[in-house]
Design a protein around this nucleic acid. Structure first.
Lengths: 226, 226
DNA sequence: GTGCGGATACTCTATTTCGAGTAATCGAGT
DNA sequence: ACTCGATTACTCGAAATAGAGTATCCGCAC
């Protein structure tokens, strides 16, 4: 078995499609699209074709025929190999059973949050909250439509998951904006004071050299733990 | 202003560091590390140096001096430009105020879930739940230690966020495993039946050609909406 | 004084990823 | 008959990413 392991979930989606029947890459892409998988798995042509090539190189799939219709581009139909089936099962099992660190953009934003003023941040979080509410409504619309069409929940699990996560994010964001405004968030006062200093022309560099002088005892923790 | 916009949050972290004082890339990396930002922002040398170069090319930062100590590699110290400050503020604002679709690995897994049997999936979700509980305990430990050291919540917001999200994921996963087992999840019966067929030697391809015959009326929705 | 683990400070290259671009065909109208 | 937009099916190259590899120096045990 190959050492260099694929990592793009799109490759798993490809295996999953080929489990059903042999297809050519473009058909895979439309299949995934029709089933709404592009909402859960990033799909673009460049990646698709390179992922297919890589799977083929690793013996997970093989080209079963290449057809040329008139002068249109050649279609290469791929089918899954036994190794590919195994890979599919083990990979999918891994995805479901093992949480991985994914770096979300909000996490990045929160960790750099002190770079803006508290007022600013709470305002921005309010905006985010509003957009999250809109997302939730649009997810609900999805469920309503699916319900009418008789689509079973099984095929909407990803969306239910997204709803749960979006709701959790909304709750968190609303609470955080509140805590910043009320000063319930530990450190909010120093943060505020620091931005007042910056606005009055003191540079961050100066403050950084002697935080305790500028910000008081609370700022002691900002110094390197010697 | 350059058209090609940076997108790696690491670049924002770089700007955020240089806001405090000029630094060379390696110092930026250790600073981020010491502050625990590498938990929220993916950091590796390759990306760091290329991101720094890109920021420099776009006029967000400039090399202020290059020092050579004996025969050790040259250190290039960078400082932020006014354009860089602006970029920092607007980018961070964007991150906080605007949710973006991030494709998490669980979402991918869930959307391909029907590829494994219901029994298998619920077992895998149990395993995931257990690992999530461990993560939660380890996050709690982080908070305890931080509390003792007097570190204010402000510098732990990312971790509080992660706890909220992890808890939400845990709740979802536990509920889903339950619903699969109890059959409360819509479509679970067809799913079960399908895997029984596959185990008894019927190929997915055959089933796919005439799902209604193999699986009954419920499977009608699996056919292309003509 | 010498060996050696760890920190310092990058560099290099192989992959991956992205998405715009190309080029042919089909069907619906005019 | 013709044309215009949508669909089919991929190609290409620039840019980003990952992380192993390199080379130097410092402190401390022996």
């Amino acid at each position: 078995m190959a050492k260099s392991s694929l990592s793009n979930p799109l490759a798993l989606a490809v295996l999953s499609c080929l489990l059903e029947k042999p297809m050519h890459p473009y058909e895979i892409s439309t299949t995934l699209r029709n089933r709404g998988k592009e909402n859960s798995i990033k799909l673009n042509y460049g990646s698709l074709y390179s992922v297919v090539e890589s799977l083929s190189k690793h013996g997970m799939i093989t080209a079963s025929e290449t057809v040329r219709d008139g002068r249109r581009p050649e279609r290469t139909v791929y089918e899954i190999t036994p190794a590919g089936r195994e890979k599919h099962d083990s990979w999918l099992s891994e995805l479901l059973s093992t949480p991985v660190r994914d770096f979300t953009s909000l996490e990045a934003g929160l960790s750099l949050m002190p770079g803006l003023s508290p007022d600013e941040v709470s305002r921005l979080l309010d905006m985010r909250a509003e957009k999250l509410r809109i997302s939730l409504r649009s997810l609900q619309a999805t469920f309503d439509v699916a319900g009418e069409r008789g689509l079973p929940d099984l095929f909407l699990v990803e969306d239910y998951y997204r709803r749960a996560m979006t709701q959790a994010e909304l709750d968190f964001v609303v609470k955080l904006a509140e805590d910043i405004r009320s000063g319930a968030l530990g450190g909010a006062k120093v943060w505020q004071r620091m931005h007042e200093l910056v606005d009055s022309g003191v540079s961050l560099e100066e403050i950084g050299k002697d935080p305790v002088r500028f910000l008081g005892e609370e700022a002691r923790v900002m110094q390197p733990p010697q």
